[in-house]
């Protein structure tokens, strides 16, 4: 078991981080807003933590103190929340594809800025970010509670007034408006919540990955997170969590399949080097055959029926 954890520790933590990034994209989607801004806030949160830990909190010990990590997560959340508000209030007047394009532009502007500013380390980025733990697997102490907390938060959100308002806006914004729901307020709220979550995850990831550079917040990353949500399921909190976990693990699974003996040489090579091709094919097939994603609300409901009698 210890062997398993030391081999797959990095992957396990990455899977949970992926699940939270899925949730951060799912939050605006709850209110029907396709926003691809998560990688931008993720990158910003990471830079916040990286700059704080390498420049502000000069420390002498070998391990980075945990309370400071929590402080960084809070700061990253606040910074991303404020920026989310500033971007969200004007951008959320836009609908559908316009909002998606605006958020793509936002991510690109942030990326170019981080490539050129001195404080973010330019193209090289920031490296040597101090580690709070000895081994990657110990990051579970931070990541697992964070995931449980955010999943529980979204689960509860789906069942209270605000969450129902999100759903109403997703189904029909005009009708929701007529019912007395303030669409702008709720859309900005959903967007900002997603931004905060992405920022906090970024802060943890910066420590976890040890280096942070402009490649963290790219258009490619947006597509990958979107895949988590849409293939996992975009109608319930479990979808993005499952999608994030499964799709982060997919490259490793494909590599494992490629290593099984008895496979033709070309197939093994394809599974190893062409895994992003498979990724893309899964996106296309998923949207065509599972338009609601793999985890649908109906699926979750059916499981609960015996208890409701």
């Amino acid at each position: 078991m210890a062997d398993f954890f030391s081999t797959y520790g990095f992957l396990l933590v990455s899977m949970l981080l992926g699940a939270m990034l899925g949730l951060s994209l799912y939050l605006p989607l709850m209110a029907g807003q396709l926003s691809l801004a998560s990688p931008g806030f993720y990158a910003l949160g990471g830079y916040t933590a990286a700059i704080l830990s390498t420049k502000v909190f000069q420390m002498s010990g070998s391990l980075f103190p945990l309370p400071l990590l929590v402080v960084e997560m809070l700061v990253a959340g606040v910074v991303c929340g404020i920026l989310g508000l500033m971007v969200g209030i004007p951008a959320l007047r836009l609908r559908g594809i316009y909002l998606a394009i605006a958020t793509i532009a936002f991510v690109e502007v942030l990326r170019v800025l981080s490539l050129n500013l001195e404080i973010t380390g330019g193209a090289v980025g920031i490296f040597g970010i101090p580690q709070p733990f000895q081994t990657p697997i110990e990051y579970l102490w931070i990541v697992l509670p964070l995931l449980l907390l955010s999943a529980w938060f979204v689960y509860r959100l789906e069942r209270i007034r605000v969450g129902r308002a999100f759903t109403a806006i997703r189904e029909d914004e005009l009708a929701a408006d007529a019912m007395g729901i303030n669409p702008t307020y709720h859309k900005v709220l959903a967007f900002t919540l997603g931004a905060i979550l992405a920022g906090v995850v970024g802060a943890v990831s910066a420590h976890f990955l040890n280096t942070w550079n402009a490649r963290q917040g790219t258009f490619d990353a947006s597509i990958i997170y979107l895949t988590f949500v849409l293939i996992g399921g975009s109608r319930t909190w479990a979808g993005p969590v499952l999608g994030g976990v499964a799709f982060t693990a997919l490259p490793e699974v494909l590599r494992a399949i490629a290593d099984t003996s008895g496979l033709p040489l070309w197939l093994g090579q394809f599974l190893r080097d062409g895994r992003l091709i498979i990724f893309g094919l899964l996106i296309v097939a998923g949207t065509i055959f599972f338009p609601q994603g793999l985890v649908t609300p109906a699926l979750l409901r059916r499981k609960r029926q015996p208890f409701s009698k």
């Binding site: 594809i97 849409l230 893309g280 996106i283 296309v284 949207t287």
Partner: peptide, 11 residues
Amino acid sequence: TVVSSLGVAVV
């Protein structure tokens, strides 16, 4: 459809 065209781009 947007997502499926993104998938095609990745492929």
